[in-house]
Write a protein that binds this DNA or RNA. Structure first.
Length: 640
RNA sequence: GGGGCUGUAGCUCAGUUGGUUAGAGUGCCGGUCUGUCACACCGGAGGCCGCGGGUUCGAGUCCCGUCAGCCCCGCCA
């Protein structure tokens, strides 16, 4: 996009009237300096960043502007004071330009004030673009062919010495995350965050254009709403008008978008803010953004096709690749072959079932697991015998962290098997497994719900440890046929995704008799092992919906209280419908880089769910609480 | 709610076995310097060692508690 900035543009220095000390936010079209000339088109303006204050953006100045008289504005990024000659690296969002202040071309005042400028001061400079001397060009700088010879210089605003540096030397570490969040205004000036947020903007724009092109309508749903059914805690907002009653912030627009389908909106999407009052992680923020999509008279294939097209556009904008159609795995296949419902298919390493071979070995652990109804599954790592015992133990630690009692392993070296597993091997065991000299076997025995997570963790740890090369860089994947229910733990049923998933037609007859085996028309989109989002075809029959809610343990009264307005709507003639929602923040992190969601959000919360920059949340004066009919319990803070 | 890591100058970090006056780089302040781009050189200021308590003749260092940030489990799609 930026490469559209071409040479040319305005050669207009004399025509720009100096804005003097007036407010800097005068609308560009009414700026006297522009009136009377050709009004710049939006496109032209974007290409040069011209405003009433400045002729161009600093990063847009190239050799094509050599000789141009310009007025430029920006922050003092760095200053190199050579005594008689001062170099200022000036910065704005478009880039960095070296300005030079010297007695031969700068006014006395400019020379005097250039020496006293500090980092992050805001300046206005007037002067001329010149090619740099041959031996002073900087090939590492986008604008390094030229510099700006300052004739006059005005400090528009002084900046206190920044608490955290905006400019980091090549060897300098980032300031602590705490300081970066506390002084977010400075952190956001760094090019990494600026460009990532700009990428985010372009990504969202591409999504909006894409769905608009398919006839989707963006509809806004309420932020003040009713407690939603996803299962996370709601953020509650007290109602002043109705003391004792509360709104909830939406965990997602789920029910609203279904109602929009019943209302006939046919194809809906929304860039939607969602709120969940749960503890944070690197990939979880209490408020986050989803691209929320729903359509009527659709089957799963429609959703897959649309979203693949959307991801292809998004990837193009973000400089990635999304080859369509995406591969698919059923949930059962994914669990069997990778032990996880969001396998990272950049690597083709798979989990295998070793039960027939290893179950025959003379080992109490192995035989006991099989007799108890479990299996012996594991990972065969060609070349894995190069790992040290310490490295293997680190992999085992990951498996244990995922809930396994332990991992058995065997190195195959010089025709014999060693290790806690290898010592049970018989002559033909290695051959029966297809293992050769130099290989490593990692094995877990027990019920699938224990071995799967353990082997999934071991798989990724082994890949990392062996530094296996990915077989592809962008692994997009649909995981389909998620179960409708999961075990609630105490014999109860819980919704695996949410309670509105349409059961697979082939499994509908099992709903009451064997609910846990009922597959849903539910699917996740996975990218490089990250779950980007999930969706489903929804129940559109009020009776079936009521049945499912009942199976989840809700009484008729609760169903009416919580979901009455949805069931009411379904009875109004609901079309078959379905959709999906993807996490926008996660997409940005995966496609534009960044270590955590905090790097994709302008003003994120800390792990303890605080906003350090603005200082939220904060206590409120008792009188405000009284207005809301709220009294704090002891130890609950309050006051003001 | 639980576990782990971190907290020393504005910033990034070092600080030995518990031992005299807590250091470095960078930034900041003052000075010299006309082609730098991590400018260079000279000089200077700058410390509640997160906070509270304890052990000890003596604590940045050991112990307990607490606060904050980060990572993880629980929780949460």
């Amino acid at each position: 996009m930026h490469d559209e900035w071409g040479p040319g543009g305005y050669r207009s220095a004399g025509a720009w009237t100096r804005p003097g000390h007036g407010p800097p936010f005068r609308a560009t079209p009414s700026t006297p300096g522009i009136r009377g000339r050709e009004t710049p088109s939006i496109m032209t303006e974007r290409r040069t960043d011209a405003t009433g204050w400045r002729s161009r953006g600093l990063g847009t100045v190239t050799i094509g502007q050599a000789g141009d008289e310009l007025r430029l504005c920006g922050w003092v990024h760095r200053r190199r004071d050579l005594g008689g000659l001062v170099f200022l690296d000036l910065r704005d969002r478009s880039g960095i330009l070296q300005a030079s202040v010297g007695p031969d071309w700068s006014g006395e005042e400019a020379v005097a004030s250039a020496g006293s400028l500090g980092a992050e001061d805001v300046v206005l400079v007037e002067g001329v673009v010149v090619p740099r001397p041959d031996d002073a060009r900087n090939p590492d700088m986008a604008t390094g062919e030229v510099e700006f010879q300052v004739r006059s210089l005005e400090r528009l605003n002084r900046a206190e010495t920044p608490v955290i540096p905006v400019y980091l030397s090549p060897e300098e570490e980032l300031p602590s995350e705490e300081l970066r969040l506390r002084h977010r205004v400075l952190d956001l000036r760094r090019v990494e965050l600026q460009s990532r947020l700009a990428s985010r903007h372009r990504m969202i724009l591409a999504m909006r254009n894409y769905f608009d092109g398919l006839g989707f309508v963006e509809v806004e749903t309420p932020i003040l709403t009713k407690p939603t059914p996803e299962g996370a805690r709601d953020f509650l907002v007290p109602s002043r008008v109705h003391p004792g009653e509360f709104f909830a912030l939406p965990q997602s627009p789920q029910i609203y978008k279904q109602i929009l389908m019943v209302a006939g909106f046919d194809r809906y999407f929304q860039i939607a803010r969602c709120f969940r009052d749960e503890d944070l992680r690197a990939d979880r923020q209490p408020e986050f953004t989803q691209i929320d999509v729903e359509a009527s008279f659709v089957e799963e294939e429609d959703i897959y096709r649309w979203m693949e097209g959307c991801m292809a556009d998004v990837a193009r904008v973000m400089g990635g690749t999304a080859e369509t159609p995406f591969p698919r795995l059923t949930h059962a296949e994914a669990m069997e072959r990778f032990g996880i419902d969001r396998p990272d298919l950049r690597f083709d390493l798979e989990v295998r079932d070793f039960t027939p071979v290893l179950g025959a070995l003379d080992s109490n652990i192995l035989q006991g697991a099989v007799e108890a109804g479990g299996r012996i599954r594991g990972i065969h790592l060609p070349g894995g015998a190069s790992l040290s015992r310490r490295q293997i133990e680190a992999i085992e630690a990951k498996a244990k962290g995922a809930g396994a009692p332990g991992l058995l392993w065997s190195k195959i070296q010089e025709g014999s098997a060693s290790g806690p597993l290898g010592r049970f091997f018989q002559e033909d065991t290695s051959a029966a497994l297809g293992a050769r000299d130099g290989d490593l076997l990692l094995v877990a025995a027990g019920p699938d719900n224990v071995t799967s997570p353990a082997l999934a963790a071991a798989r990724m740890a082994a890949i990392e440890s062996l530094e296996l090369a990915p077989v592809r860089d962008h692994a997009w994947l649909w995981v389909t046929e998620f179960p409708v229910f999961e075990d609630g733990g105490d014999g109860s049923l819980a919704a695996n995704h949410h309670p509105f998933v349409q059961p697979h037609p082939d499994d509908l007859h099992l709903l009451e008799s064997d609910p846990l085996s009922v597959r849903g028309q539910a699917y996740d989109l996975v990218y490089n092992g990250t779950e980007l989002g999930s969706g489903s075809i929804r129940v559109h029959d009020a009776g079936l919906q009521r049945r499912i809610l009942g199976m989840l343990g809700l009484s008729e009264a609760e169903i009416d209280l919580k979901f009455g307005f949805l069931l009411e709507a379904l009875k109004a003639g609901a079309p078959p419908h379905g959709g999906i929602a993807l996490g926008v923040d996660r997409l940005v992190v995966r496609l534009a880089g960044g270590a955590s969601l905090r790097d994709a959000i302008a003003f994120p919360k800390t792990t303890a769910a605080r906003a350090l920059f603005e200082g939220a949340p904060s206590p409120v004066p008792p009188v405000e609480l009284a207005d809301l009919g709220i009294q704090l319990m002891k130890g609950g803070g309050g006051g003001g």
